[in-house]
Design a protein around this nucleic acid. Structure first.
Lengths: 159, 159
DNA sequence: TATTGTTATACTCTATAACTATA
DNA sequence: TATAGTTATAGAGTATAACAATA
């Protein structure tokens, strides 16, 4: 059983507003929204009994499989030694499969099994449903939100 | 050393757009923005050598301290047994302090030390700075974003 | 009896370092 | 010598279950 908090999530944001500048207001609002919404990921992961790391592997590897394990370590920004255990567990669950590269026998190519793809699709469908705070908005508010966030996504990356 | 990913973060969002409805567009945009931004928390946590769980405890407990450990377990939505170790480690770092409740000697009241508050303030200041994708927006875009997100925050909780 | 916190145990995720097999 | 993956070891975050002290 996953314990459920009985209190509204306390915010990690500094108690005192630091500034009224638009940039701070926008960041503060986004911060608070993320605080409220980011519980959805772990809760969906728990629904499918999938640890977050495995869920990330499943989604990030599927579109580019089969890939060498070093590539996964790179994608996950973690040490290669972790990938061994991660892939071990996912292989035991029948989600992934190790294949040997014919040209370089040091390399193990990781493929997503049919069961892995099926699970990914089920999780996808579950994640695609807008959570209540979004669904509750009017269509106009939803469009305004999508547009405002679109500007964030269009902003050039940190470099 | 924390390994840095050399590739753009792949998205966990379903590859195929599921719908054009405003609710889905808004949710999808928010999802992608969160994906892009949520790396800031761990990176700030790493800067201060603070695991995320400890950071949450520090911020959520500080405003209401001193509190019984069960209250922390409730706030963190985790089992009480974890709080023992969490508080152990934070007490060793001098961030928290166990006190005994005079009226009920089963209860340990957790207080944040002066050092704990100082660390919280330093982290606060660091988090208050809008990340580049937000800072890069025009003031008008920032205001629109704050307003659109305000509607999400005003939406009634899931209940 | 019920509650608070601890301990014991186990599993997952992370890191570093040493190892192997290949190249 | 260098690279891909593994194993060994360690520490943090979780869970469940059994326990001691207190109410």
């Amino acid at each position: 059983m996953v314990p459920r908090r009985t209190d509204p999530p306390a915010s990690t944001w500094p108690a005192e507003p630091v500034s009224d500048a638009p940039a701070h207001e926008a960041w503060r609002s986004l911060f608070l929204v993320i605080q409220r919404l980011k519980e959805f990921w772990p809760s969906i992961a728990a629904e499918f009994d999938m640890p977050m790391a495995q869920m990330r592997v499943l989604f990030e590897v599927a579109p580019i499989a089969p890939v060498p394990m070093t590539r996964i370590a790179d994608l996950m920004a973690c040490d290669a030694s972790n990938v061994t255990g991660l892939v071990d567990r996912m292989e035991q669950r029948g989600l992934l499969e190790r294949r040997t590269d014919e040209h370089d026998r040091r390399i193990k190519l990781i493929a997503v099994t049919r069961a892995g793809l099926a699970l990914r699709d089920k999780i996808s469908a579950r994640m695609a449903a807008p959570p209540p705070p979004i669904a509750a908005l009017s269509a106009q508010e939803q469009r305004a939100l999508a547009k405002a966030l679109g500007a964030v996504l269009d902003a050039k990356p940190v470099s």
